[in-house]
Structure formats: structure tokens, C-alpha cells
């Protein structure tokens, strides 16, 4: 299936999240990120966590995979959290004070929020954009979303074509690299011993033939594409067009609702006025 390209760890499947239009997924991811950075109350964070769990379940992604995604950043996360705890100055009495270190309530809250933000950001965007969307679908989505830029002469189609050809050739080039490496090994090349410098040097005789053959491939492919009447996106139609379905609008509604709730729960003076007014209207209606 389409999924056979192993880049960015796409997990093929037929879940509702997989079936979502890639354009809507990109839009949803933007809303989701906006919501994460707007959130600054425990209630808002609770809502974001619930949304993230909901996405994981909907995409049928195993929690093992999620843990794997978070693992590489745990160290940085703990480190920045500790710095936040120690360096944030708050009002009132410190919770803990010894020697020069004073820990305030605000510091702890800030550290927790920051850590949560990063974790759900990574989980949410991975689930939406990498785990459930094939790179090709993503490319199509980006091309379609950026197509208004064509009016100001941005070569959107060309970039998308380049992206999809690059994806198409990844397995071919991996295969070729293996072949070249085997050919070099059979003549006594050593790629697996020695220091970093020696190993890096050993890569040169692989890269040179790989580049030469890639250029040759590129030229042949260009000729083949011309033979098949390729002339950019001029007068071009598509076998599979992206189309928004009911589920995409539904997803849009959910994500917008989450963002609205998060904004409403914000603790800032400027918003409180608006918040009360909106709540007044809502309750008045009820």
C-alpha cells in the first residue's frame, strides 16, 4: 500500500483520523497548537489533555508509540522544568527556602505547565500529522492549502512535485546505497570500525557514486516525464482530488470549540470582561 514509505513513521490504517482530509488535519494542527499556547489555567490544560487522549484513541495509535515519541525529549524537559522551578520569583512567601534557593508556588505551576505544553504538543502533532497521514497525502494537503500563493507566482506545484518525487525515490536510493556499500565491502572497505573521523571518511566513496547516479536518474526521470506530456500544472487534472467530507467539518468544529473554551478559561484581565459578557449572554439565553 501507499504506506510502504518509511519516513516519519507513518502507521497505515483506516481509522477516522486516517481518513480525514490532510488539509483539515493541517488546519486542525494549527488550531491545536494555538490552543496549547493559549492555555494557562488547570482547566484549560485538562481540556487539552482530554483532547489529546481523544485523538490518540481515534487514530488507534498504541501508547507504546506515544511513549517512544516523548522519550527523546524527557531529559531536556526535566532540565528546563527544574530551572523554571528554581528561577521563577513569585509573590508572597516561598514554599521552600534554604541557602540561596527559594521555591515559589508560581515556579512549580510554571514548570508543570511548560512540561505539559511540550509533551502534548509533540504527541498531538505527531498523531495528527505523522502517525496517521502518509507523507504523500501531507504533500498534497500542503500543495492544496498553499495554492492561493500561486497567484503571486510562488511555484507551489513545483515544490509539491519535488517533494513527492523525493519521497518516491527514498526506497530506490536506499537500495542503491546498500548495493554500493556491498560493492565497496567486497573490495575490502571497512565502514564499521575506527573513530568518527575514519568512519566519516569511509563514507566518501559511497556518496560520490550515489550522487553521480542520482543525477543520472534525475535526468532520465525528467525525460520520461516530458515523454508523458508533463508541463507543470498547466492544464493538469488529478485522478484523486481531495474533498472535505462531513467528518472534516465535524473535526473543525471540535477543534474550534476546544480553542474557544481554552480562550474563555484564560486568566487575564483583558479577557475577563469579554468572558463575563459571553457567559452572561450564554446564561441569559439559557
Amino acid at each position: 500500500m501507499i504506506s510502504d514509505i518509511t519516513l516519519g513513521q507513518f502507521f497505515p490504517g483506516f481509522s477516522p483520523l486516517h481518513k480525514m482530509d490532510p488539509r483539515m488535519k493541517i488546519i486542525a494542527a494549527v488550531i491545536y497548537i494555538a490552543a496549547i499556547f493559549t492555555a494557562n489555567t488547570p482547566a484549560a490544560f485538562a481540556l487539552m489533555i482530554i483532547t489529546t487522549f481523544f485523538m490518540i484513541t481515534l487514530g488507534r495509535i498504541s501508547f507504546k508509540v506515544i511513549l517512544k515519541a516523548v522519550k527523546p525529549i524527557i531529559f531536556i524537559l526535566i532540565f528546563t522544568a527544574i530551572i523554571n522551578v528554581f528561577l521563577t520569583k513569585g509573590e508572597g512567601e516561598p514554599l521552600l527556602a534554604f541557602w540561596v534557593i527559594k521555591i515559589y508556588k508560581e515556579g512549580i505551576i510554571r514548570a508543570v505547565f511548560m512540561a505539559l505544553r511540550v509533551v502534548i504538543l509533540i504527541i498531538g502533532t505527531s498523531v495528527l500529522l505523522t502517525y496517521t497521514t502518509s507523507p504523500i497525502a501531507l504533500t498534497d494537503g500542503i500543495e492544496s492549502l498553499l495554492s492561493p500563493l500561486k497567484k503571486i507566482k510562488v511555484p507551489v506545484h513545483t515544490f509539491a512535485m519535488m517533494m513527492s518525487i523525493a519521497l518516491r525515490f527514498i526506497p530506490t536510493l536506499i537500495e542503491e546505497t546498500e548495493k554500493i556499500m556491498n560493492a565497496q565491502k567486497s573490495r575490502g572497505a571497512d565502514f564499521s570500525s575506527g573513530g568518527l573521523r575514519k568512519r566519516a571518511k569511509a563514507l566518501v566513496p559511497i556518496l560520490v557514486p550515489l550522487f553521480v547516479s542520482s543525477f543520472k536518474r534525475a535526468e532520465e526521470l525528467a525525460t520520461a516525464m516530458e515523454c508523458r506530456c508533463y508541463r507543470g500544472d498547466k492544464n493538469r487534472t488529478k485522478l484523486k482530488a481531495l474533498s472535505f467530507k462531513a467528518r472534516d467539518f465535524f473535526a473543525f468544529l471540535i477543534f474550534s470549540a476546544v480553542l474557544t473554551l481554552v480562550i474563555l478559561s484564560r486568566n487575564t484581565d483583558a479577557l475577563i470582561g469579554i468572558k463575563h459578557r459571553v457567559l452572561d449572554i450564554v446564561f441569559y439565553k439559557l
Binding site: 510502504d4 513527492s164 519521497l167 518516491r168 526521470l221 508523458r228 487534472t237
Partner: peptide
């Protein structure tokens, strides 16, 4: 290998007709 453009067979076969604007 150097003639196939798409990552799915049917999309590759469709490449020519797509260019013709059918």
C-alpha cells in the same frame, strides 16, 4: 525505476492522463 513518478501504481499510470488534463 527512473520512469515511475508516483508512490502508488495507479497514480503513476494516471500521471500521463493527468497531464493531458482529462
Amino acid at each position: 525505476d527512473n520512469q515511475l513518478v508516483a508512490t502508488v501504481v495507479e497514480e503513476d499510470v494516471a500521471f500521463g492522463p493527468e497531464n493531458l488534463g482529462l
